[in-house]
Amino acid sequence: MAGAGERNETVRAIKRLGRRLWKRWSGYHRRSLAEEAMSRLKRLGERLSAREPAYQVAEVQIRCAILNTFTVLGMPDTVPCA
């Protein structure tokens, strides 16, 4: 199985580097965030309701603004501990 070899290599890399470092090294977080953003966009509806191109542009911009708001609301507040 081709996928099993890739999975085994990933598991070895995680054991060698640790999960946190592996996620940064592999770009896992970026992919995960991109997939989540697309999922939220699809939940807003897969089709545009406007017919005119100018209104479609406005509708897409509104959807992007909503997604950005979701992202800001979902981001944790980090506080340095010393």
Rank of each mutant, 00 (worst) to 15 (best):
L17A: 10
M1K: 08
V79D: 06
N8S: 09
G74C: 12
I14Y: 01
E36C: 05
R20A: 09
R43M: 02
R40A: 07
G18V: 02
L67W: 00
S26T: 02
Q56H: 01
R31C: 03
R16M: 08
A58C: 11
A54S: 07
R40K: 07
A82H: 11
G3Q: 15
N68M: 12
R31Y: 07
K42V: 09
R20M: 06
A54C: 11
S39Y: 11
Q56F: 01
A65F: 03
L48V: 05
M1Y: 02
R19C: 11
A50W: 08
R19H: 01
R47C: 01
A82V: 13
L33W: 06
S49R: 15
W25K: 13
G74D: 14
T78D: 05
Q61A: 10
L41V: 04
A65D: 15
N68S: 08
G18R: 03
L48P: 05
R43K: 00
D77W: 14
K15G: 01
I66G: 12
G27T: 01
A58W: 07
E46S: 03
K15D: 05
T69L: 15
G27F: 00
V72W: 08
Q56P: 05
A2P: 12
R19K: 02
R19W: 06
R7L: 15
F70I: 14
V11T: 10
K23Y: 11
E59M: 04
D77P: 11
